[in-house]
Amino acid sequence: MTDGTDRPHSPQPDPASGSGGYGYPADRISGGYGYPQPGQAAPQPGANPYQPEPAPGQPAGAQGFGPPQAQPPLGAEPFPPGGPAPDAFGAAAAQPDWQAMADRTEAQRRKRRMLTIGIGALAVVLVAGGAAFFVLNGSDGPGKEPVTASSDSPGPSGPSGSADPKTPEDDSPTVPGEPNLLRDRSGKMGIALGPGASLGELAKRTEVRFKGTADSYAQGAEAGVDVTKSFTVSTRAYNVSETGSRMAVSQGDGVSYSFELGFEVVNGKKAWVFRVQTGDKGQAATAQQVVVDNVNTTRTWALLTGTYDAEKKTIALWVDDKQAGQAQVSGIWAGPGPLQLGRARHHGIWSAAWDGPLDHIRVFDQVLGQEQITALKNNKPDKKTRSTHSWLI
C-alpha cells in the first residue's frame, strides 16, 4: 500500500542463470517458501514447515502452540463458496459498507446544520431581548442612553429633512474642526467648553460633564433667549452634589443672572429651582423663584424645564413632564451677557458650579405647555415646537 507518492528506489539486476531468485543462493531450489534444501527431508503431507519441533517428552505430532489444527483435504477449497476472496496475507478482504458510511456523513451534516441554525436563532433572540430591555428601562444614570431619538436632530435624508445625504458632520456634537465648541443643532450659536468641562462620548449620544469647580463651565457666544419675551429653557440634568447651589443653565455675565435653572438647598431641603431676577442690582429681594423639594434631586436623571409667559407675567418650573409650580413676577431684568452652562453670576462673581453631566439642552422662543413638555421628556418634540437653539441632542 502506498500513499500516492513515488518512493525512491534503485533498479535491481536480473538474477543469474541457475540462481533461485533475487538474493538467494544458486543451490537453493526455487519454487516458494517451505521447500527443502538439498539433503533435507521433504515435509510430510499436512505438516507445517514453520511449526516448531515438539518439546522433549511431548508426543509426536503435537504442535508447540496448542492442539493440532485440522487441515482441509487436498483439492478442497480453503474458503466457502461465495465468500470473500483472501487478500495477499491469506485473510478475507472486508468490503466497506458504503451506504452506511454515506448515511453517517449525511447525519453529521444535518446535525451541524441544525446546530448552526440554533446558534443563529439564539443570537437573534438575545439581541432582541437586550434591545427590549434597553427601551423599557430607559436611562437612569450618567452615561446611559436616552430612550428615543430626537426630532430636533437632522432627519434620515439630511439636515432639516433635506434630500441631501447625511455626512458625519451632521451627527457631530461639536463644530467640525472645533472639538471644544458645541454645535447648535437648531440655530447658529456655538457653546465653548471651559478648561474643566469635557465631553462624554457614548454609543448614541454625547453629554457634557462638569466637575463642580470654577473652571468647569461652558459659555455661549450670545444670549440664548430674549428675556423680555416669552421663552422656555430645558435640559436633562444629573446632579451629583447634595449641598450648595448648583446651576445647570443660566444667562448673564454682568452683576447678576437674568435667569438660572438647577439645584439648591432651600430651607434645609434639597430642591430643584427656577429663579429669575427682576431688578438690575441683583438683590435677593428682587429675585423670584419656583421650588420643588418633594422629588429626588441627586444621582438621577431629570428633565428640568423653566418657562416664562410674558403676557401673564408668570414663571413655571417643570420636573420631567409635571409642573412643580408657578409664580407671578413683574418681569425679568435683561442683564448683559451670554448663555451659560454649569454656572451662574451672583453679585458680580461666578458661583453655583454644576457637578455632573448635562445633555438635551434646548431653548424656545415660546411658552411650552403640558403636551409639548411631555414630548420633550420622551425626546420627541413635534415639528411645530421647534427649538431656536439646541445642543447635545
Results as ranks from 00 to 15, higher is better:
Leu181Tyr: 02
Ala192Asn: 04
Arg209Ser: 13
Arg236Cys: 13
Gly262Cys: 00
Lys269Gln: 09
Ser258Met: 05
Gly212Arg: 02
Ser186Lys: 07
Thr235Asp: 07
Phe263Lys: 04
Gly252Ile: 00
Val233Gln: 01
Gly212Asn: 02
Glu201Arg: 15
Ala237Leu: 07
Ala218Tyr: 11
Glu207Ala: 15
Ser230Thr: 07
Gly224Lys: 08
Gly212Leu: 09
Ala248Tyr: 08
Ala214Asp: 04
Thr243His: 04
Arg183Asp: 09
Lys281Gly: 12
Ser250Leu: 02
Lys269Ala: 03
Thr213Leu: 01
Lys188Thr: 14
Val265Pro: 08
Val227Tyr: 08
Arg205Ser: 14
Val265Tyr: 03
Asp226Cys: 01
Ala248Asp: 06
Asp184Ala: 07
Gly200His: 11
Ala237Thr: 15
Val265Thr: 12
Val240Arg: 13
Glu260Gln: 14
Ser186Thr: 12
Ala285Cys: 06
Asp215Tyr: 02
Arg185Asp: 04
Gly194Asp: 06
Glu201Thr: 15
Tyr238Trp: 15
Ala203Val: 13
Glu260Thr: 05
Ser241Leu: 09
Phe274Val: 02
Gln251Cys: 08
Ser234Ile: 00
Gln251Met: 04
Gly268Gln: 07
Gly254Phe: 09
Lys281Asn: 14
Gln277Asn: 11
Asn239Tyr: 12
Arg185Met: 12
Asp280Trp: 02
Gln219His: 00
Lys188Asp: 15
Ala237Arg: 12
Val276His: 01
Leu202Met: 11
Phe259Glu: 03
Arg236Gln: 14
Asp215Ala: 05
Arg246Tyr: 06
Val227Asn: 11
Val227Gln: 10
Val208Arg: 05
Ser258Thr: 13
Phe231Ala: 03
Leu182Met: 09
Ala248Arg: 06
Asp253Cys: 03
Arg246Asn: 15
Tyr217Asp: 02
Gly187Pro: 00
Phe274Asn: 09
Asp226Ala: 10
Gly279Ile: 00
Val273Leu: 10
Val208Ala: 03
Ala223Asn: 03
Phe274His: 05
Leu202Ala: 11
Ser256Cys: 08
Thr228Trp: 00
Arg236Lys: 15
Gly282Gln: 07
Gly212Pro: 02
Lys269Ile: 01
Gly244Ser: 11
Arg209Asn: 12
